[in-house]
Simulated scan of single mutants.
Amino acid sequence: MGHRIFTTAVADVYPHYVAKVERKGRTVEELHQVISWLTGYDDAALARHLETGTTFEDFFAEADMTADADLITGSVCGVKVQEVEDPLMKRIRQLDKVVDELAKGKSVEKVIRTPAA
């Protein structure tokens, strides 16, 4: 049995992401940049998922996750992202983490990780 968040619509959580980043002086465009980097969704695809009430489970099942997602480390709500066992929960925590970083003032360039050369 999966966690309740798996069957929650992304559209139900998205306004909280927007409020969080805007409260800290960031923009919806910057939020979309980091979501796009992580999931591969462009603005039109993201809008479609929000309009149709896609669950987190389906949202991430259809996503073209960046190969650099595993570079996302640190804690969200006291849970270390890199230690989350369940693959879907890990993706959700990674999304939470990049939104947190953006809201905490990290530049989009820093949130969008690139592996060390």
Rank of each mutant, 00 (worst) to 15 (best):
M1Y: 07
H3C: 01
I5L: 12
T7G: 12
V10F: 13
P15N: 00
H16G: 09
K20L: 15
K24C: 12
R26W: 02
I35T: 03
I35M: 09
I35D: 01
T39Y: 05
T39L: 03
G40A: 10
G40E: 10
Y41P: 12
D43C: 01
D43H: 10
D43N: 13
A44P: 00
A45Q: 15
R48T: 12
H49C: 12
H49A: 13
T52M: 12
G53M: 10
G53F: 09
T55R: 13
E57S: 15
D58R: 14
A61W: 01
T66D: 05
A69C: 10
D70E: 11
D70Q: 03
I72G: 07
T73K: 13
V76F: 10
C77M: 11
C77N: 13
G78A: 05
V79S: 09
V81A: 09
V81T: 06
E83N: 14
P87V: 09
M89T: 15
K90M: 05
K90T: 07
Q94F: 03
D96F: 08
V98L: 14
E101C: 01
G105N: 01
G105P: 00
S107M: 02
S107P: 01
V108Y: 00
K110R: 14
K110C: 00
A116L: 09
A117K: 01
